[in-house]
Design a protein around this nucleic acid. Sequence first.
RNA 1: GCGCCCGUAGCUCAGUUGGAUAGAGCAUCAGCUUGCGGAGCUGAGGGUCGCACGUUCGAGUCGUGCCGGGCGCGCCA
Length: 577
Amino acid sequence: MKQELSDQIDKALRRLLERSGDTEPSPSVALDTPRRPEHGDFACNVAMGLAKRLGQAPRAIAESLVAELGDAGGLVESADVAGPGFINFKLDLSAWQNQVPEILRKGSLYGCSDEGADKRVQVEFVSANPTGPLSTGHGRNAVLGDCTARLLEKVGFEVTREYYFNDGGRQMRVLGESVKARYLERLGRAASPSPEALADPETAWLEESEGLPVVFPRDGYQGEYIGGIAQDLIDQFGEGLIHEPGDGQFRDYAQSQIFAEITKTLDSIGIVFDVNFNEKSLYDRGLLERTLEDLRALGLVYDAEGAVWLASTKMDLDRDRVLVKGTGEPTYLLPDIAYHCDKFSRGFDQMIDVLGADHIEQFPFVQKAVAALGVNPDQLELIMHQFVTITSQGEKVKQSTRRATFVTVDELVEQVGSDVFRFFMIERKPEGHLDFDLDLARDQNWRKNPAYYVQYAHARTYGIERKASEVGLSMPDHDAFDPLRLDQPEEIQLIQKLVGFSEMVSRAASTREPHHVAYYLRELAGLWNPYLQDGVRHRVLSDDAALTQARLGLVGAVRVVLREGLSLLGVSSPERM
RNA sequence: GCGCCCGUAGCUCAGUUGGAUAGAGCAUCAGCUUGCGGAGCUGAGGGUCGCACGUUCGAGUCGUGCCGGGCGCGCCA
């Protein structure tokens, strides 16, 4: 509808410019929705931008444009020139009202578009290495990536969700050694390091204690889950693994166990990946060597100090980076570059990496290197997000990765459920900090907890349907009511909000900002809940049969939009609460 | 020290290529209300948009400099 008006204005503007002998390209017409209702339904500022070019007063240009436009084929009720040169449009009420059956007709397709038609996009997210349970930061990353993927699907892209993890390097070896240490401790063949030493890197690290060697690695993983994995191995193998190296079965078993746990966690919040891509497969296919050779052929690689370096300063970056260590082992950077080349070779039109703030430094190196190897840098984009803090009783909950005292996704989901978890995690724009208010998240009061507030708004559409069925009424089809009966100001306002859904989806998808969906839903619910509450002025079920049908039509349209919006967030749409 | 992100109401945060008198939720206060669904409805107060300068018809939004907070700056990932 907005598009239709915008097109009409565009045509009128072209006619106007042509007549005045102006041959330059016509400026694009932008409409925005004014904050103040007396400024109409849509406002246009194109006249102000043309003032200089045409050498006329903006208001005069606006007047001519209004005259040229006429009533835009019955769409416009009034067009007024206001302020410094705005044109304020008020649409005919029926233009709004007739959208209600349209929403019902489209149903779950409402809000969809073809912006991404025939395009394949890959979203890489979570990508936590399987060394422990997912933290809240990973949780935010997971929800952000998944909601972005859902938005892209909504606007027509073919989306691949992918999880990449490093299983070739040092980190996994330390994991294996950590498990082996706990294994030996539990069998009475090794001693645990002192708690003081574990807590503080500066404290002396004993080689042995009470006659037993201390084998736990200095930078090992201290979480309790490591002991659990060790216990599993004792239950299975007894003492049979005491001569097994840490990076053998210990590592393999720990990795597969932890990865299975991570998968389970993600599943519990409705996230399933299409591809789990492991670093090792890059080694197996010889892609590291090939990437290195390709970069070397471009003169972007050199040897120094016993290591192999990426000449990133030649690519406008502030320093060079090591690709292969003196030990002959690659750093994580080389596989990362090889991985992104592999992505590209799989034919995606667009690749999106979702990364936490602690990893963004890495991104430019990968992007530049991959660009040197022939990928258009615009095809590889980054969604960066800041960290999560958890607040309860007005105090921040302290977290430490090193000591594994962080709050896990599992713990949070157990307390508040998947729906609230996801809603809270997506509510903030990615680049801002996210303060997770645990008390509010736990609050069952629908009026206070925004997640429930929106879900409740949806459930109420079913409450009304149930009530209606008691008097033999059912929800009308899209052509079985007269939308012109929806003429109360609150109803028009609701309809305008419903109509704005598509534009919001399109914008959220193109800017990769799913938090707009959450805000939109809160606003819609903020109109809908009070509308229902005021059962005097506009009761849905009344003695007026035709009016009742029309309002049930509105109930249906609101239901469609709430359901579609919630589904973009991966939050359920309950029929009762 | 250098790089990136953030700074908007008491708190947590929105703010659509720069648009008209800066918004929401929570909290506070006042009045109404006994419900198509669990207490609700209506209204009010609350702001030098971190500070300064600049760009222009117009700046919360763009540029520069400063202040404050977070993250990063490894042959760790």
